[in-house]
Amino acid sequence: MKNTRIMAAALLIVGSGLTLAAAQAQQPGLRRTDLLQHDLSVPAREVDQVRVDFDPGAVSIKHSHPGEEVAYVLEGSLEYQLEGRSPVTLHAGETLFIPAGVAHVAKNVGSGSASELATYIVEKGVPLVVPVE
């Protein structure tokens, strides 16, 4: 029985990693650099910071996160389409708050590369990127 639980936990962990890897693999022209992951004083929550670099014309898959995201555009111009809202274009130095669970897409609409610093306040132990159909 103990071995069954250990195997189930291992499969869950591997499956979570594969979901994230699959989400990232489906995003040509994007590069994610994990910068920080740290527990918060709120139980079962953590903060993650990620730099996302977009090649010209690159578009993310439609996805959500298990918590809030604050996107800060470091360079270039990015268009964000949040489900149920009109698209918004941000330029270097501008920010956007994305509520927990809201499906969205980000696209580089500038002529060169673009980058964002994404800060997530999320549920600990849950995949950071959840693909949405």
Score class of each variant (00 low, 15 high):
residue 39 D to H: 12
residue 50 V to C: 03
residue 87 P to M: 05
residue 99 P to H: 11
residue 123 E to A: 13
residue 116 E to W: 04
residue 60 S to R: 02
residue 41 S to G: 10
residue 104 H to S: 12
residue 46 E to D: 01
residue 53 D to R: 14
residue 15 G to C: 02
residue 14 V to R: 08
residue 88 V to E: 13
residue 11 L to N: 13
residue 8 A to Y: 08
residue 77 S to K: 15
residue 51 R to F: 10
residue 47 V to H: 05
residue 22 A to W: 03
residue 91 H to P: 00
residue 111 S to G: 05
residue 59 V to A: 09
residue 21 A to Q: 11
residue 14 V to Q: 05
residue 80 Y to W: 06
residue 82 L to M: 14
residue 23 A to N: 06
residue 16 S to A: 13
residue 27 Q to S: 04
residue 26 Q to T: 01
residue 107 K to W: 03
residue 51 R to H: 11
residue 129 V to N: 01
residue 25 A to C: 00
residue 121 I to D: 02
residue 53 D to Y: 06
residue 19 T to D: 03
residue 71 A to K: 12
residue 107 K to I: 05
residue 61 I to P: 06
residue 23 A to H: 03
residue 65 H to L: 05
residue 127 P to M: 09
residue 105 V to N: 08
residue 113 S to D: 15
residue 72 Y to V: 10
residue 3 N to H: 13
residue 16 S to T: 02
residue 100 A to R: 13
residue 65 H to A: 11
residue 58 A to S: 13
residue 48 D to S: 15
residue 82 L to R: 11
residue 79 E to A: 10
residue 45 R to P: 05
residue 81 Q to A: 08
residue 114 A to N: 06
residue 115 S to D: 02
residue 5 R to P: 01
residue 77 S to W: 06
residue 47 V to M: 14
residue 65 H to G: 07
residue 47 V to L: 11
residue 97 F to C: 07
residue 57 G to Y: 10
residue 86 S to E: 15
residue 51 R to W: 06
residue 88 V to M: 04
residue 75 E to M: 04
residue 102 V to I: 15
residue 40 L to N: 08
residue 57 G to N: 12
residue 131 P to M: 02
residue 121 I to Q: 07
residue 90 L to K: 08
residue 1 M to V: 09
residue 111 S to L: 12
residue 86 S to T: 10
residue 87 P to D: 01
residue 45 R to I: 00
residue 62 K to V: 12
residue 64 S to C: 14
residue 27 Q to G: 00
residue 80 Y to C: 07
residue 14 V to I: 11
residue 81 Q to K: 13
residue 127 P to D: 12
residue 71 A to H: 10
residue 71 A to Y: 11
residue 120 Y to D: 05
residue 133 E to W: 05
residue 50 V to N: 01
residue 57 G to H: 08
residue 114 A to H: 09
residue 58 A to M: 10
residue 72 Y to A: 07
residue 129 V to M: 03
residue 53 D to K: 10
residue 56 P to W: 06
residue 30 L to K: 01
residue 30 L to W: 03
residue 111 S to W: 04
residue 87 P to W: 04
residue 1 M to K: 10
residue 71 A to E: 07
residue 65 H to K: 06
residue 71 A to R: 06
residue 90 L to G: 03
residue 5 R to L: 14
residue 89 T to N: 01
